[in-house]
Design a binder for these strands. Structure first.
Lengths: 221, 221
DNA sequence: TTTCTTCTCCCTATAAATGGGGAGTCCTTT
DNA sequence: AAAGGACTCCCCATTTATAGGGAGAAGAAA
């Protein structure tokens, strides 16, 4: 029999945390060591109380510092604790983004109740875990590559947006036009145009509306 | 001492329901009589088991039939049970839309834990209840009208979109351009242009991106 | 009946976005 | 040293969206 698994939960909705804690309390191998309502709280917690948690359950959408920011922080500071993303979104692009940032598991809120305990035990054991529906999508995306279920590679990055492209994308969602964006970012209009074009190409959308919808779906705004 | 308040909870995320139930179980005056994961389940439940619940806690975002659909169903079938919207969104337009559809309370998921019991008791008592942050926004919007806190009027509708405008808006979010929309709806290009213009005017946005963002925020798509 | 809204279409005109290229600098990685 | 990525800007041209106005037909509401 192994030791208890210590867990930290982060979600901006306290009610969700309450739910998760209620579920996790039903398992004697798991112990909740704290929770956070913002990404900033998470990083602070892990700075001050290192090694008090083995697994972090992390929501993507949080104020101040979001899940992506937390993952980046973990990666940068080489924090070894396992992270499981708990998300409302089952967009494959998000999942891949999170994977590339080093998360070890990804479960959707739809079926968190059923799978969260299994997910925690799996990643605590050094393996990766994904909700069945996520797994299905990942496998579909990877069709052609030889991978077995449950052991997905981390080394497939999505066509990541550069910093500048992200800057432009964010301003587009604010209804800025090209010249306003150029002014705001102190760039030439041609430059902003270039970024618009590369955004359209990378995200495979038709127009600015497509960019905005992508940004919303992927919680960039 | 009054009787127990019977409550039904609807949210597409089971984990949220678990959280709400956990919170509500701490109050002896409240009893949960069931829950639903889709809007369709809600209407079915209220068809088969009338009067088994006094208050319905309703999430806006649900598959099959969303919260708006449920409210419309309630209104149409003159179902008298009180509805409290539990939402992630604090957009004032959504709140007003919900109010016009007859909901009696509106709380955000951010502070549901603190206010949900108070909200249930308030609406069960025949009054309206809003999260403090929502109340603040409503009052700001109503600035100029004479209303006291906690007793807000139901009779202020937003500048409603017509059916055709909604048709066009939905297609815009799908990245259709004007001529594609015209083809799809069997309209002339000029006509679609007219709707685009009125959408921009009514929703007070600058461009198609603004329309798309509005549609997303207000769960039109 | 008159008024109002909605739906439909038109005109003119400008502003903005999209599509296809090229190209130089800087910096990091190989 | 070479290669690649990111950042910056430019040319060309076409398509699309936005802005302002007008107007008739049908139906509902006052």
């Amino acid at each position: 029999m192994k030791n208890k698994i210590y867990v930290h939960v982060a979600d901006d909705h306290k009610i969700v945390i309450d739910g998760i804690i209620a579920v996790l309390n039903t398992d004697k191998d798991i112990e909740i060591r704290g929770y956070s309502l913002t990404g900033k709280e998470v990083t602070t917690w892990f700075e001050n109380d290192q090694n008090q948690a083995d697994v972090l359950i992390l929501d993507i959408t949080m104020p101040i510092l979001d899940g992506i920011g937390v993952l980046k922080y973990f990666k940068k500071n080489r924090i070894r604790q396992k992270v499981i993303i708990l998300s409302s979104y089952d967009d494959i692009k998000i999942v891949q983004e999170m994977l590339s940032l080093g998360c070890k598991g990804y479960i959707t809120k739809n079926n968190a109740g059923e799978h969260i305990i299994e997910a925690i035990k799996t990643v605590a054991n050094g393996e990766q875990y994904f909700s069945p529906n996520i797994q299905r999508q990942l496998l579909k995306t990877l069709a052609g590559q030889q991978v077995e279920e449950g052991a997905l590679p981390e080394n497939f990055l999505i066509d990541t947006l550069t910093d500048r492209e992200l800057d432009v994308l964010k301003l587009i969602t604010k209804q800025f036009n090209t010249s306003e964006i150029a002014d705001t970012l102190n760039l030439g209009i041609s430059t902003v145009d270039t970024y618009r074009k590369s955004l359209l190409r990378k995200l495979k959308v038709k127009n600015a509306v497509g960019l905005a919808m992508y940004a919303v779906k992927n919680k960039i705004v």
